[in-house]
């Protein structure tokens, strides 16, 4: 029997929750939407050719038709950032999506089937989880080398354990609940139980980890390209622009500040949206 106090408390929290219309969440959603628009049409939105050099206007502060000034070679910073959105964001999105597909499936299957394979995968995930992923990526990509998609693959491999662990432990809770036993008793097939019964109930975790994986990969990509790894220096990305701008911070501060702010704002928006979405979905699961 559920205690009165607990259920009443939950109701109290529900009321508290409904009152907070998440203006911030809406803003974060709009930010991410804007970033996505830049990913799709950044090159087209750019006011100038992002690779057009002009040695006369090297590292200029904003002005002269350059809203954010120019870089060392006289290229328009705003245009470079807009068109750089694609290489800065597509990779992380692929990493997060890959994590979602592979990690969630492995995590749920592991929780449902258990057994030796699950134990092995879990041990491995635990081990990789305890290692500094970004540093490994830096070392591997720095020493062995590799282009954009190798970077995506390395980051995907390094973020998978996180996704597997979270999805597995969330699915573990569900798998032990009687509704899964009931589904098995009725004779529903294992994969159908996993995708139709378990997945909708761990959706809050899946959505939140998708966004967190995205944030991790976004920051990872930016860090790598800041160090000159992953993204070829010729193609614009937020990380490379940031690196170029640091030495020119007195001439055109916007060259480094703008990409730094872009990274922070995008990452924070996604984190907040993940956090909020998790709470919302988790809440919707229990109260309706």
């Amino acid at each position: 029997m559920t205690s009165d106090v607990r259920s009443d408390q939950a109701e109290g929290a529900a009321i508290d929750h409904l009152q907070r219309v998440p203006v911030v969440a809406v803003i974060c959603g709009l930010v991410l939407l804007a970033v996505l628009v830049c990913v799709v049409a950044g090159g087209w939105l750019a006011p100038q050719d992002p690779s057009a050099q002009n040695p006369l206007l090297s590292a200029m502060a904003p002005g002269h038709g350059h809203l954010l000034g120019t870089d060392e070679l006289g290229r328009d910073v705003l245009s470079r950032l807009l068109s750089g959105a694609r290489s800065s964001v597509v990779g992380p999105l692929v990493v997060a999506a890959g994590c979602l597909l592979i990690g969630a499936t492995l995590g749920m299957a592991g929780a449902y089937f258990g057994g030796v394979v699950d134990t092995a995968v879990n041990r491995l995930a635990d081990m990789v989880y305890a290692l500094p992923a970004l540093l490994i990526a830096i070392v591997v990509l720095g020493v062995v080398g590799g282009g954009y998609w190798i970077t995506v693959a390395v980051l995907l491999l390094l973020s998978l354990p996180y996704e597997i662990r979270l999805c597995r432990s969330a699915a573990m809770v569900e798998v032990r609940l009687p509704y899964v036993d009931a589904a098995r008793t009725i004779g529903i097939s294992a994969w159908r139980i996993i995708f139709r019964h378990v997945l909708p109930n761990i959706l809050p975790t899946v959505v939140a980890t998708f966004l967190l994986d995205f944030v991790g990969a976004l920051v990872g990509f930016a860090a790598l390209s800041y160090l000159g790894l992953g993204v070829p220096p010729s193609s614009p990305s937020w990380g490379t622009t940031l690196a170029e701008g640091q030495s020119l911070i007195t001439q055109n501060p916007w060259l480094s500040i703008a990409p730094a702010v872009l990274i922070i704002v995008t990452a924070s928006s996604a984190t907040l949206l993940g956090d909020w979405g998790h709470e919302l979905l988790a809440h919707a699961g229990t109260q309706r």
């Binding site: 640091q246 922070i264 984190t271």
Partner: peptide
């Protein structure tokens, strides 16, 4: 804070 990587924050 979680979304602010140290290197980007460092520049700011």
């Amino acid at each position: 804070g979680m979304g602010a990587p140290g290197f980007a924050l460092g520049i700011l």
